[in-house]
């Protein structure tokens, strides 16, 4: 079990999301930074589908009530165990009774804690992701609170060998980690690659130019559902009303006030505003790590490039999965 001492700002249980029910109006939810969530799982020998704990901006304080193999991936949070700094993006063995604290997010704003065996809350409609508004998934459909105890699944049997090595230390970081190529690191004026959408031509020429030539800032009115952007307003060439239709992760829609909203993990399934562009899947993890106040610029790429970049990254993650498995197995003869 993991015992929550302090919940932090917004700490929820997430996995890859609740797919298959959007036609019934059920939102996807899931980890905002899917890459960090998946790699956190891979580092502890889990399948990518296991649930992790997503910390936001100010992370939680929690205690391991059993020996465990963990990893911390995503934004830089300066985490420590029993007062000693602990590395991110690498597997860490923790002893029963150890207490993990997160600092404030230094780079990025979401960090994923994976535990070998996964966080074993109930599966609701095929997923363990927390859906706050409907109150389902995760821990009782809500953010974590002090006193919550979360069950951990059984780790892959070959990992027990590692976990047993902990003995008297409070934690041991294994001597290998994920290369920087996989680590989401937000830059100043973060470039974000997009494809123009079907309704792009409905926007005025001035809006189209401003969208690609001027920077935008993430507004303080931003959450897991969507980020509002401050910057130039983006009016349509002439007013239009649209019928509601499906939207997806990374859709940039523009309500009649001209202020764009980027739809994220907790977006509604459908929307009725014109869409100016769509963030390339490969850039969604970095976008989801942006804090309010961060500035971004949009850059156009083609659909073909977006799909090629996405597939290149997926292949790289497959290689990483094999490399991690080999690392673990090299110690077992």
């Amino acid at each position: 079990m993991i015992l929550i001492h302090k919940p932090g700002m917004l700490t929820t249980i997430q996995d890859k999301g609740r797919y298959g029910f959007q036609k019934q109006g059920i939102i996807v939810s899931g980890a905002m930074d899917q890459t960090a969530h998946r790699i956190a799982n891979l580092l502890v020998g889990n399948s990518e589908d296991c649930a992790t704990i997503e910390a936001t901006i100010a992370g939680p304080k929690l205690e391991f009530e059993q020996d465990a193999l963990i990893s911390l991936c995503g934004g830089e949070f300066n985490p420590s165990i029993d007062g000693h700094r602990v590395k991110q993006w690498c597997p860490v063995i923790v002893r029963k009774g150890s207490v993990l604290t997160f600092g404030q997010a230094k780079n990025g704003c979401r960090c994923y804690l994976a535990v070998a065996g996964g966080i074993q809350v109930d599966v609701v409609m095929g997923s363990r992701s927390t859906y706050l508004r409907a109150g389902i998934g995760g821990k009782d459909g809500r953010g974590l609170r002090a006193g919550d105890r979360l069950p951990i699944g059984t780790p892959a049997s070959y990992l027990q060998l590692y976990i047993d090595e902990i003995k008297n230390k409070s934690f041991i970081s294994l001597p290998w980690s994920v290369t920087h190529a996989f680590r989401t690191k937000v830059q100043n004026n973060q470039p974000v690659r997009v494809m123009i959408s079907h309704e792009y031509h409905l926007f005025s020429k001035k809006s189209q130019q401003a969208f690609f030539n001027e920077p935008f800032t993430i507004s303080s009115q931003s959450d897991r559902m969507g980020y509002r952007l401050n910057g130039p307003t983006l009016p349509l060439a002439e007013e239009q009303s649209m019928l509601s239709e499906a939207v997806v992760f990374g859709t940039i829609q523009v309500p009649s006030n001209g202020e764009p909203i980027v739809l994220l993990a907790d977006r509604q399934t459908t929307g009725g505003y014109p869409r100016i562009a769509q963030i390339a899947s490969v850039d969604l993890p970095i976008f989801a790590q942006l804090k309010p106040g961060a500035t971004i610029t949009f850059h156009e790429i083609t659909l073909e490039e977006a799909q090629r970049l996405y597939m290149d990254r997926e292949r790289a993650i497959k290689h990483l999965t094999r490399a991690i498995t080999l690392q673990y197995q090299s110690r077992i003869r």
Binding site: M195, V248, S281
Partner: peptide, 10 residues
Amino acid sequence: LSPLGDHAIV
């Protein structure tokens, strides 16, 4: 048919 990003077709 038209694309909606790199994972969807409308």
